[in-house]
Amino acid sequence: MIALYRPGTGIFHRLPAGVKLAALAVGALLLSLYPHDPISIAVSLLIVVGLYGVSGMPLRVLLVETWRLRWIVLVLAVALVIFVSPVAAWISTGRVLSVLLLAGLLTLTTRMADLLEVLHRLLRPLRRLGADPEAMALTISLTLATIPVMAGFAARVREAEQARDVRLGVRAVVPLLVLALTHADEVGDALAARGMG
């Protein structure tokens, strides 16, 4: 769901990671706190699409990012249509989609090392409270980096189902869990090899 960095020379690639992270936070707050109507949500989505265009990303990248989010959008929209109203479904789903696409644009245009450095600087004051900012920043960056890996594992499980012409249904969680645990062990071994407990 969260994309990996794509090298480029667009305006968003050149902006400092801290500025982009702050802009994402402000955008998420505005989308979450400001009382929206269907038209303002449509405008928000158009602005996000425009930001992808300004960033120099091909339209295909935006379509791939949107496709990755299809299940979140579908489940949220259907639940809200059933339990609330179609208008509420459009507003809430549009908010979530806008924020997730903005987060995707951040990770597409920002190296993980740069994000890690910004997070480390932001978390440094917590050292006075006994927290370890390096470990916290590493944990956050590993979480962000693992999301697309998990999406890749899910795609592998689906491809294996299609190749064998079977439908595992809920049981598909088992191979996905095995892949996730194997990946976690490999990451743990790599961190231990570098002296990170």
Rank of each mutant, 00 (worst) to 15 (best):
A77C: 08
V78Q: 04
V78P: 04
V78R: 04
V78E: 03
A79T: 13
A79R: 11
A79V: 11
A79P: 01
A79Q: 11
L80Q: 13
L80E: 14
L80W: 11
L80Y: 11
V81A: 12
V81D: 04
V81L: 12
V81H: 03
V81R: 07
V81Q: 08
I82C: 06
F83W: 15
F83G: 10
V84E: 14
V84Q: 15
V84G: 01
V84R: 15
V84K: 14
S85H: 13
S85I: 14
P86V: 03
P86N: 08
P86S: 06
P86M: 06
P86K: 00
P86E: 12
P86Q: 06
V87Q: 15
V87P: 09
V87H: 08
V87W: 15
A89S: 15
A89P: 13
A89E: 13
W90Y: 15
W90A: 13
W90L: 13
I91Y: 10
I91G: 10
I91E: 10
S92E: 14
S92I: 12
S92L: 13
S92C: 10
S92N: 13
T93D: 12
T93H: 07
T93P: 02
G94W: 11
G94M: 12
G94K: 10
G94P: 08
G94V: 08
G94D: 07
G94N: 10
R95C: 02
R95F: 05
R95I: 05
V96T: 13
V96L: 12
L97Q: 14
S98W: 09
S98R: 08
V99F: 01
V99D: 00
V99A: 10
L101R: 04
L101S: 06
L101H: 05
L102A: 09
L102N: 06
L102V: 05
L102C: 08
A103S: 06
A103L: 12
A103M: 09
G104K: 01
G104H: 00
G104R: 01
L105Y: 00
L105F: 03
L105R: 01
L105N: 02
L106H: 01
L106G: 00
T107W: 04
T107I: 05
T107Y: 02
T107M: 05
T107G: 01
T107P: 00
L108Y: 02
L108G: 00
T109M: 00
T110N: 00
R111G: 10
M112N: 06
M112F: 12
M112S: 09
M112Q: 14
M112H: 08
